[in-house]
């Protein structure tokens, strides 16, 4: 932890006089973090280094969807839960993935495996309704995907088998 705090101080020192310093600092702290998120201790250290109230820093960190306040998986799977995808089975698809990974969605609509390999999110619509159901894996859109294909993809990312999509 100590090294990380020093690293944060370094990031703060680099940006503190910039316009909109807090956002750049939080962005860089998140980017350089191990699991792509801002931990409570890191946020507190940013606040301390800038002599800002903790609640103010928290307010900013929670306002922007870009910032994660929980550890994120190495691989991000986003399942569309829009109407079109729903009618084409996105609910069982989502449930299958969650069961396969042994996790369940939390109040904020996401879930991450304990080893931080995978995070599952939902989205309201990808705007690709004609190709439902739609799932994105690490930013790549997969359309008309089946349960079997998705699980194979996950296996591939987990290093178990070759992908066959």
């Amino acid at each position: 932890m100590h090294d990380r705090l020093v690293a944060i101080e370094h990031i703060v020192a680099q940006h503190r006089h910039e316009h909109g310093a807090l956002l750049s600092i939080l962005e860089e702290v998140q980017r350089t973090s191990e699991h792509n998120y801002l931990s409570k201790d890191e946020l507190a250290h940013v606040a301390r280094s800038l002599t800002l109230p903790l609640a103010d820093v928290y307010s900013v960190a929670t306002f922007y969807a870009f910032f994660n306040l929980k550890p994120q998986g190495e691989h991000v799977i986003t399942v569309c839960r829009g109407t079109a995808c729903h009618t084409r089975g996105s609910k069982p698809l989502l449930e299958k993935v969650l069961t396969y990974l042994g996790i369940s969605l939390e109040d904020d609509g996401s879930a991450t495996t304990a080893d931080c390999r995978f995070t599952v999110h939902t989205v309201a619509c990808f705007g690709q309704c004609a190709l439902a159901p739609v799932v994105s894996v690490d930013g790549v859109i997969h359309s008309r995907i089946t349960e079997k294909q998705l699980l194979m993809l996950i296996d591939a990312l987990a290093g178990k088998k070759e992908a066959v999509v």
Binding site: K40, L43, A44, P53, L54, A55, V57, Y58, F63
Partner: peptide, 20 residues
């Protein structure tokens, strides 16, 4: 000059909250 609480999150999820 305490700032123990702040508006957090946004949109329909906006809430007054303390740090973390």
């Amino acid at each position: 000059s305490v700032s123990a609480i702040q508006m957090t999150r946004r949109g329909l999820s906006t809430q007054v909250a303390t740090f973390a």
